[in-house]
Design a protein around this nucleic acid. Structure first.
Lengths: 245, 245
DNA sequence: GATAGATTATGGTCGGACCATATGCTACTT
DNA sequence: AAGTAGCATATGGTCCGACCATAATCTATC
């Protein structure tokens, strides 16, 4: 704590702590405690090196570290901008990692399976606990989705929006963040696959079945409808892989 | 792509891409494609700067970036060691982020609620799909847990082990990784809370009820038993917060 | 008053030096 | 001969000062 005065004197200090880490930790704390507000600009590198008594290289490495953790955004020629991490950014980070990590069929299935697991449970939750305005929102999303049949990119969008309602219902901000990660992961690898309206029709029918089951307050059917819908979607994703063994 | 030959000539290259990013991407690719095997040592910084024709500062920032992403481990005086990221590391990263981010009661609840959501669904899954050896494993974990009643730290350990079996059952490596993140998050904030054997007894009873419901192939009861168990655990966590409004 | 050029702020890079740590080799001591 | 202290080497960590690249601002010219 408070290295701002002790960090100078350049070649000493011995222990295994990197100076850049100390600076990064200091700045991270300042961000998380509100000393640096969201959207605010970080001090210039040349200021920071004076303030903490370290070289610019150390400051830069600290900034790289913060940027990697999503606490700041860097643009060339601009001072870094503070971005208080929310669930979306956090989940997004792990999403990127997992996305890179999931390259083979097995890995993709593992990830997709978590989505099925997640959404079947969400469907069950909705059937049990959805309030009237939740249902209205879901119905609106369903209608919008139906009207988009035939328009691939628009359909995908409204498709995601329908599922997004499911993630939003429990009122826990972590779920929408997870959904966003799924969507980005999927669109990144299968962006707007061209296909006939028949596929859209099938997917819409899936959404409709899910909605009906939820409306009927039937958890088992809601779960099953969601599972069928996603397994069908998986067959689509799976078909994009060459080695189908 | 392929900056390895174009990166030299120092002050040019214009576009908004940082050299350190290019180097980091290059190395990351090399790791993910197996060009650098797990456990292998990265080339020395002074080698990398020559190989990519960039300054050492750029190389270092790239290394910092890779280290932050968990692809390498750095130790002073040692060459960085390649650590191919698995699900555990990925989830662990987001766990750290979320852990920092979750500071107030609301945030803690949100996170804990995802655990309840997750594990109730897992209980349901187990009741429906557990195989005989799964059940035996779970029973063994239950027995070990019972024998640890009264020994706080040992009980916590066997408690986590019991839940770990639940996460392992579906055979998707992502779930155990998530469980590990939960456990680390919880133990980090409420490490070995001292308490009477009565609490252990209560928690064990919860585990037993879950097991019995799973054994009876009763998804609804398994889910409900798990929910009761975790809600009780939440009351415990909640009580550690001052502002109980 | 609008545009082009100079000024300034700031991040990005370079190169070379030196410090700190880890490991192994060498030579001296016992 | 065995052990140990110390030197040499490899490598990461830090510093400095310079220059380049980009962006915003100010100024002078048309």
């Amino acid at each position: 704590m408070d290295q701002s005065e002790k960090l100078h004197g350049h070649g000493m200090m011995g222990v295994g702590a990197r100076r850049s880490d100390a600076v990064a930790a200091e700045l991270a704390t300042m961000i998380q405690t509100g000393g640096l507000q969201e959207g605010e600009r970080l001090p210039a590198e040349r200021d920071l090196m004076q303030r903490y008594g370290v070289s610019r290289a150390a400051v830069r490495e600290a900034i790289v570290s913060l940027a990697n953790r999503g606490l700041i955004e860097t643009r060339l020629g601009h001072r870094p901008i503070v971005r208080k991490p929310d669930y979306e950014i956090a989940v997004d980070r792990v999403g990127n990692l997992v996305g890179h990590l999931v390259v083979d069929r097995k890995g993709v299935w593992n990830l997709f399976e978590t989505r099925i697991f997640m959404e079947t449970a969400l469907a069950r939750w909705a059937a049990k606990h959805a309030r009237r305005d939740d249902l209205e929102e879901l119905r609106a999303a369903l209608d919008t989705n139906r009207e988009a049949i035939g328009n691939s990119s628009l359909f995908d969008e409204t498709d995601a929006a329908f599922h997004a309602v499911m993630y939003r219902m429990p009122g826990n901000p972590i779920y929408p963040a997870i959904h966003k990660a799924y969507v980005e992961w999927l669109t990144q690898h299968w962006r707007s696959m061209k296909r006939g309206a028949g596929i859209d029709q099938m997917n819409y029918a899936g959404h409709e079945a899910i909605f009906e089951a939820i409306l009927a307050r039937d958890p088992d059917n809601a779960e099953e409808a969601m599972r069928r819908h996603l397994v069908a979607a998986w067959e689509f994703v799976r078909s994009t892989f060459p080695s189908d063994n």
